[in-house]
Design a protein around this nucleic acid. Structure first.
Length: 287
DNA sequence: AAGCGCCTCAACCGCCTGGAA
DNA sequence: GTTCCAGGCGGTTGAGGCGCT
């Protein structure tokens, strides 16, 4: 018995949000708070599905969101958290102040997984790929621009040749309830480790601190620049037990706090036996 | 300059879970 | 104990931008 859609799609707007819709949503939430997503659109005068409103608010309109310019340290942290948690984007996002799961998921899929592949690391297992696999990746990369360049193109939906899809090799994700890890609270929790929020103006109001635009060039150009990925490979982060955190970029408050954050997680792992490492780690994120 | 194809990322979809009835 | 509802999550899609030929 299939579940009915979350809302009737009839007569509802879809696709990109207009500035007017954004304004309506923001004004409503500022006045009444978020939650009750199903009834919210109606009350706010929006012809949108409640889910769509929630997504828009969570990913783009919340005042505490910072967009773009993922720092190399955040980059590093995402990779390391992913090696521990797998595709549990919401958990990873919860550890990165101002970042959303969608943003991190996209960033992983478009940048980091490719980068790991090109470095000879399996983005799913975070283990070294066999030599032929690495060469295949490089081949594919270099073949870009040739007539045979169609690979994982979503536009060719019909005859989609499945490239190796990322599979999670970790236990089933633990759902984070709004009680155990509410979004905003998670930022606060992060801030117990870090001072990030104080520097990014979370209370700046809608859009005042939102950075629009492409990802930082630093990130894209960082392939070998800071060397942290080389360290990643060399230290085998997969088990989370035999590498050392390294600060590879000039230390700012943000960078240090991210390092600290991750080190705390590592300590949690180190203090438990191997069997319960992941569980403990996951639990630590939920408290 | 034009056309083609890839890349990015905002948005959607379907499923799952927890809580209320 | 069961069913239904609402919220949350990860996976997937596709429009638009961009680079290459």
């Amino acid at each position: 018995m299939g579940r009915a859609p979350c809302c009737s799609k009839v007569g509802l707007h879809r696709g990109p949000w207009t500035p007017r819709e954004d304004t309506l949503l923001v004004k409503y939430i500022q006045a009444h708070g978020d939650g009750h997503w199903r009834s919210l659109p109606k009350k706010a005068g929006l012809l949108r599905c409640g889910k769509s409103c929630r997504l828009r608010w969570m990913n783009y309109l919340r005042p505490d969101i910072k967009r773009g310019n993922i720092t190399p340290d955040e980059d590093d942290l995402i990779i390391r958290l992913h090696s521990l948690l797998g595709n549990r984007w919401s958990l990873i996002a919860g550890r990165l102040p101002g970042r959303t799961d969608n943003e991190i998921k996209n960033y992983w899929n478009t940048h980091l997984s490719k980068r790991l592949l090109s470095q000879g690391t399996d983005p799913n297992t975070h283990k070294k790929l066999s030599e032929p696999a690495v060469q295949q990746v490089k081949k594919r990369k270099s073949s870009r621009g040739n007539s045979n360049k169609k690979q994982n193109n979503s536009k060719g939906k019909g005859a989609k040749v499945e490239p190796e899809k990322p599979k999670v090799h970790l236990p089933k994700p633990v759902r984070v309830t709004s009680f155990s890890l509410p979004r905003n609270d998670s930022f606060d929790q992060c801030n117990t480790f870090s001072t990030v929020s104080s520097s990014q103006g979370g209370e700046g109001g809608l859009g005042t601190e939102v950075v629009q635009g492409p990802w930082s060039d630093n990130v894209n150009d960082d392939e070998n620049g800071t060397g942290f990925l080389a360290a990643y490979d060399d230290h085998g982060f997969v088990n989370g037990s035999d590498f050392e955190c390294q600060s590879h970029v000039p230390a700012s408050d943000d960078d240090n706090s991210l390092e600290k954050l991750y080190e705390e997680y590592l300590q949690l792992l180190k203090t438990n036996d191997d069997q319960v490492q992941l569980d403990s780690f996951a639990e630590s994120l939920l408290i």
